[in-house]
Design a protein around this nucleic acid. Structure first.
Length: 479
RNA sequence: GGCGCGUUCAUCUAGCGGCUAGGAUACCGCCCUCUCAAGGCGGGUACACGGGUUCGAUUCCCGUACGCGCUACCA
């Protein structure tokens, strides 16, 4: 039975890289009919952020990633929050000390800092100098009894080569002399990531550890820990990193990295998930649009790439647009409604549905519906008019022609696409001009823009009264 | 500095010894057309470099270069 976990640290928002990791875990679990577990790694009290867990849960739900065991659903291996498991870690740290695989260390942060600086100045790798590694048990016990602050460090074996197999990268090996005597238990009694992670992965019977590549260098420590406990390690799969345009690790400095930002900027979860799934993995070569079920069906760790992937916002935009186009106006309505309300645009559902229909093909994100289509809700004020379009189409002759056409439009009994088109084209023909000579000025008068849906559909949606009012106003006041 | 990982178009990628190196996004043309989109058609740009192995390397091996990651009582 496959058991995987997503183990985020609740630091405020969900990084898109985290979402990708969560997604791969989810896809892998579902593909194999396994169990997807959520575990909160909140062992760093200094980084605690109020509400971060709740936010994370909401974001995962938005993305459509579900868990079978976790803080909310519970499960046989709980609790699923590390800060509620501290006793467990302490017990295991003691066990390691008893087995001679770990030892108490009394060095102060100040001393450690000095040692590190000296090592750096000397050009040697900064590592713990193992001062406390050979303290006698009596000495150590005495200092502990006297209440001296201490941590617990792992006793890394000397002269060993640590080997493990990574599903994505193949066989990897590290010389133990490059591995530090890692702190396992901090002086505040909380475990470090390394200890908590191994204890929990074992106790929760995790079969596959799927995580970011930044963890690859600490994997030998973990392998050593499994050995020290006498446990069977899980299988490892280290995912390629998500990158900035300059190929550094995707960071806040260079654009949006929070999933919440994408959600708030009008990206659909299906699009973001589809896009992220393809960052580092590809089932074939030609298909690119996959539903979540299709992703589950096809997902395969063996096909995950090794090299990092630059997060390409333009492609995300395209994909989001694809998803928006595939939806029905009725499906889009509840997503667009709140955006209209935020702008105090009032309109009935029927009306908004028509606007969505008209705009659907030319937006990339949800806010585009209101940004590009404000004239459906308020008359244009021409403050941000496209000057080039205006000077080309809003000529004195154009105004005169529109003035002449207006009565014919006003006389129309049915204000629909075909009658409008028919009227405008007949008028154009009668006057020996192309229809465009009328269409563009009307568009400008009614919308104030040089782009948008087909004119006749647009006029139909806006309605006769309002359309005529705008044209009259433009003819008399717009120069 | 040390250790590790990586390297096919600008970007995401297909390729698992023999291909005119394929697709997608972006870009540029043309078509369609009332504009903008969408759509159709077409175009340019890639196997980092050097050695091997092989009849034959993008593909396998070694090295170099470059990039990135890690190097905390953070995860």
């Amino acid at each position: 039975m496959v058991r995987v976990r997503f183990a985020p640290s609740p630091t405020g928002y969900v990084h898109v890289g985290s979402l990708r990791t969560a997604l791969y875990n989810y896809l892998f679990a579902r593909h194999h009919g396994g169990v997807n577990i959520l575990r909160i790694e909140d062992t760093d009290r200094t980084r605690y952020v109020e509400g971060a867990v709740e936010n994370m849960l909401r974001t995962m739900e938005w993305a459509g990633i579900t868990f079978d065991e976790g803080p909310i659903q519970g499960g046989p291996c709980g609790p699923y929050v590390q800060s509620e498991r501290t006793e467990l870690y302490r017990k295991h740290a003691d066990e390691l000390i008893a087995r001679g695989k770990a030892y108490p260390c009394f060095c102060t942060p100040e001393r450690l800092d000095q040692v590190r600086k000296a090592q750096q100045a000397a050009g040697i790798p900064p590592m713990y100098d193992r001062l406390c590694r050979n303290l006698t048990k009596e000495e150590a016990d005495k200092r502990i009894a006297s209440g001296e602050a201490h941590v617990v460090r792992m006793r890394v074996p000397i002269g060993e080569v640590v080997r493990f197999h990574d599903i994505i990268r193949g066989d990897v090996e590290f010389d133990s002399k490059t591995i530090d005597d890692q702190v396992l238990l901090k002086s505040d009694g909380f475990p470090t990531y390394h200890l908590a992670n191994i204890v929990d992965d074992h106790l929760m019977q995790i079969t596959h550890v799927i995580r970011g590549e930044e963890w690859l260098p600490s994997t030998p420590k973990h392998v050593l820990l499994y050995e020290a406990f006498g446990w069977e390690p899980p299988k490892f799969a280290h995912l390629p990193l998500l990158l900035n345009a300059d190929r550094s690790k995707l960071s806040k400095r260079q654009g949006d990295v929070a999933v919440e930002d994408y959600r708030d900027n009008g990206y659909l979860p299906e699009a973001l998930v589809n896009f992220l799934a393809l960052m580092g993995w590809n089932p074939s070569a030609t298909e690119e649009l996959f539903s979540i079920d299709e992703l589950i069906r096809q997902f395969d760790l063996e096909r995950v790439n090794k090299a990092g992937a630059v997060f390409n916002r333009e492609k995300l935009d395209w994909m989001n647009a694809e998803y928006i186009r595939k939806m029905t106006p009725a499906e889009l309505l509840p997503l667009v409604r709140p955006l209209l309300e935020a702008r105090n645009y009032v309109a009935g559902d029927e009306y908004v549905l028509q606007v969505i229909h008209a705009m659907q093909e030319r937006v990339r994100t949800l806010p585009d519906f209101v940004d590009f289509a404000s004239y459906f809700f308020v008359p244009p004020d021409f403050t941000d008019v496209d000057e080039k379009y205006k000077s080309k189409h809003w000529t004195p002759e154009a105004k005169e022609r529109l003035r002449a056409l207006l009565p014919k439009l006003e006389a129309l009994e049915t204000w629909d696409h075909d009658s409008l088109e028919c009227t405008v084209r007949e008028f154009a023909e009668a006057n020996g001009i192309s229809a465009g000579k009328l269409i563009h000025p009307i568009r400008l008068a009614v919308t104030g823009k040089g782009m948008g849906p087909g004119l006749f559909e647009l006029l139909h949606v806006i309605g006769k009264a309002e359309s005529v009012r705008r044209m009259e106003k433009a003819v008399s006041t717009l120069n």
